[in-house]
Amino acid sequence: MRRSEFERAVRDEFGTYGSSLISDLVLTRAGGLTADQALNAGYSPRDVWLALCEEMDVPGERRYGVGRLEPKR
């Protein structure tokens, strides 16, 4: 997962609320960092995405593939 895919996944799952989540919500799986802090510290976007999903109780079926661009036709 690239950073752009992470950002799209956050937007798709959480809408406008997503920007607040990534800057304010402390992620247990990311050592007590926010998503922004974790990404800036070098955590992979996929790991941060999964940590965010866990913290927000996103169902498993919506944790993978969200944020991927539609295939080119």
Rank of each mutant, 00 (worst) to 15 (best):
M1S: 10
R3H: 08
R3L: 13
R3T: 09
S4H: 06
E5T: 11
E5L: 09
F6R: 04
F6N: 03
E7P: 06
E7N: 12
E7G: 11
R8H: 02
A9M: 01
A9L: 01
A9S: 09
A9E: 01
V10K: 00
E13S: 13
E13C: 12
E13M: 12
E13G: 11
F14H: 07
F14E: 02
G15S: 09
T16C: 00
G18M: 03
G18C: 07
S19L: 01
S19T: 08
S19K: 07
L21P: 08
L21W: 04
L21D: 10
L21M: 13
I22P: 00
I22H: 01
S23R: 10
S23L: 01
S23G: 08
D24W: 08
D24F: 10
V26T: 15
V26F: 10
L27H: 12
L27K: 07
L27Q: 07
T28L: 13
R29N: 15
R29V: 12
R29H: 14
A30Y: 03
A30P: 11
A30W: 07
G31V: 04
G31C: 02
G32S: 07
G32C: 03
T34P: 09
T34L: 10
T34E: 07
T34I: 09
A35Y: 03
D36R: 10
D36L: 11
D36C: 08
Q37M: 07
A38M: 03
L39V: 04
L39M: 04
L39D: 00
N40I: 00
G42P: 02
G42Q: 08
Y43Q: 07
Y43D: 05
S44P: 01
P45F: 00
P45R: 00
P45V: 04
R46Q: 05
R46V: 05
D47M: 03
V48S: 05
W49Y: 04
W49N: 02
W49K: 01
W49C: 06
L52H: 05
L52R: 01
L52I: 07
C53F: 05
C53H: 05
C53Q: 07
E54I: 13
E54P: 10
E54R: 15
E55S: 15
M56A: 12
M56P: 02
M56N: 09
M56I: 10
D57K: 12
V58A: 09
P59E: 14
P59A: 14
P59N: 12
P59F: 10
R62K: 14
R63S: 11
R63K: 11
Y64V: 14
G65I: 03
V66D: 09
V66H: 11
V66G: 14
R68L: 13
R68F: 08
L69Y: 08
L69Q: 13
L69M: 11
E70S: 15
E70P: 09
E70K: 14
E70V: 15
E70H: 10
P71D: 11
P71S: 14
K72I: 15
K72E: 15
